[in-house]
Amino acid sequence: MNIFRLTADLMHLASIFILLLKIQKTRSCAGISFKSQLLYALVFITRYIDLFFYWVSLYNTLMKIFFIGSSLYIVYLMQVKFRATNDPVLDTFRIEYLLAPCALLALVANYAFTAQEILWAFSVYLEAGAILPQLFMLQRRGEAETITTHYLFALGAYRGLYLLNWIYRYWAEGYVDWIAWIAGLVQTGLYTDFFYIYYTKVLKGQKFELPA
């Protein structure tokens, strides 16, 4: 564990708490893409299936349980409890165009041709693109509630900090993980536009609005 990875994981944790806070406080999931949340649940389930096969640490186990549990809870909130506030009309990204290439890529580019390694690679590829429905929805709405932008910032910063963690681990331990590195780079890259607007508007006290 190093400071970059710990901060990244805490940002990831924070992003989920911000999202839960947004839904509970406003009693609405308006502006949140159900498709992205569904993809995250799939990402966590396919990646953390190793919970049953390997023991890493108490930290690792608790985090995995939290991420699986909270992602399923968010799916429940959006699909059942606050279903009326969910707006599928704006959530139009075609996730099959994401799922199929990720599944194919996982079959071809993995560390071992075993069910667990294929699922792990799939989860890493899928995580890289899972934010696309959300960003697509944001684009269509043209604006976002401030708390939603804090959620997105924390979520994007998490993978960005993992990049620093990987640089550090390569230098300190000779650690190499090409699959996670390339996917993580793509994932962070998708946030570039968002980070720019977040920095120039939200952090200066303005509303998050996209130029018309």
Binding site: D50, Y54, V56, A112, D177, I179
Partner: peptide, 10 residues
Amino acid sequence: KNGKAHHDEL
């Protein structure tokens, strides 16, 4: 060895 049989990151 390329990659790991065991992933310690989240």
